[in-house]
């Protein structure tokens, strides 16, 4: 064999670090850019309030950037933490950790840009309640960061997993699948949560007295949008901690990799879709607060139907892991 194990592990960890930081910066960059764009729009409407607008823009950008800082932490760990290498599984685990954090930061960075941008416009509309708008924006952006935190948890677990006594052949694919499952599923959830947060900030700016109701329905909508990421986390945990018997076949690892990809891609769509539903529901609760009861019910029904595809993906993943 031309490469020894140490070389392959080094390639995987440096490659994983590059992918992690590269992908992880995409979402934060777009989110921060969106915030900056709306802040410019707000400045052109009311140049004399530039201090308050820039202040809120900085707060929002600092929060949107934290997804990229998570990716930075994982990338630095991948580069400088050289774990003791005993078998090839370490390479797969480190590469998977990089992929997981890289993909996982995209949605959160982009999503938390929406409330951060809307708050700049909202302050121009309602300067009197700027503190309240900032609070609402911070809550919305913080919930958007949850999928990135899930991805970071899975990445850290993959890095510090004890792989010494595991079978190499199917487990390499299981670890890769575990990374991809949470990483990809987090994209949709982060983005969807951001849509709901953004419309809640602009809704409160329109009708400040609906603050409580709008914040509540935003949190409900965002919580439902997080479900695909939680499904992804579940599949990742199963893939990481189930013991797979050693085999020489190529079908078994492909089934496990397929399970990870299935849940990962399958989580993107429902996450974004739930976000769309929550966005409209939050927007119209702010405009028509008497209909908040029926709007909440319809939102939950709509989200539940949209969630069903994520459930199909989870079922197929579980079949791939446990049945075949």
């Amino acid at each position: 064999m031309p490469f020894d194990i140490q070389t392959i592990v080094s390639i995987a960890s440096y490659g994983g670090a590059g992918v992690c930081m590269g992908l992880g910066a995409i979402g934060a960059a777009m989110g921060v850019g969106y915030t900056g764009g709306l802040a410019n729009q707000a400045l052109s409407q009311k140049p004399e309030a530039s201090g308050t607008i820039v202040k809120n823009m900085l707060i929002g950008q600092a929060i949107a950037e934290s997804a990229a800082i998570f990716a930075l932490v994982i990338a630095v760990l991948l580069i400088y933490l050289s774990p003791p290498v005993t078998n090839l599984l370490t390479a797969s685990a480190l590469g998977a950790a990089g992929l997981c954090m890289g993909f996982g930061a995209i949605g959160s960075g982009l999503g938390s840009g929406f409330p951060a941008g809307e708050v700049c416009l909202a302050i121009v509309r309602q300067p009197a309640i700027s503190g309240r708008l900032t609070t609402n924006m911070l809550i919305g952006s913080a919930v958007c960061q949850t999928p990135a935190i899930f991805a970071m948890v899975v990445a850290l677990m993959l890095m510090f997993l004890d792989v010494n006594n595991l079978s190499v052949n199917p487990t390499w694919a299981a670890l890769l699948g575990a990374g991809l499952s949470t990483g990809l599923a987090a994209i949709g959830s982060g983005f969807g949560g951001g849509l709901a947060g953004g419309s809640s900030v602009s809704g409160i700016a329109r009708q400040p007295e609906t603050f409580g109701k709008v914040t509540t329905i935003m949190l409900v909508g965002q919580a439902v949008s997080q479900t695909p990421a939680i499904f992804g986390l579940l599949i990742s945990f199963i893939l990481m901690f189930k013991i797979f018997p050693e085999t020489t076949s190529i079908a078994a690892p492909m089934a496990l990799l397929g399970a990870g990809l299935c849940m990962g891609f399958g989580g993107i769509g429902p996450g974004v879709g739930n976000g769309f539903t929550a966005q409209s529901a939050v927007k119209w609760v702010a405009r028509n607060v008497e209909a908040s009861g029926i709007l909440t019910r319809v939102m939950l029904v709509g989200q539940a139907v949209s969630q069903s595809t994520a459930i199909y993906a989870m079922v197929v993943s579980l079949v791939l892991i446990f049945v075949v």
Binding site: I59, A62, I63, S66, T135
Partner: peptide
């Protein structure tokens, strides 16, 4: 630290 301080301050 900056993010945590901002959160605690506003929330």
């Amino acid at each position: 630290a900056v993010q945590i301080v901002t959160f605690v301050d506003h929330i």
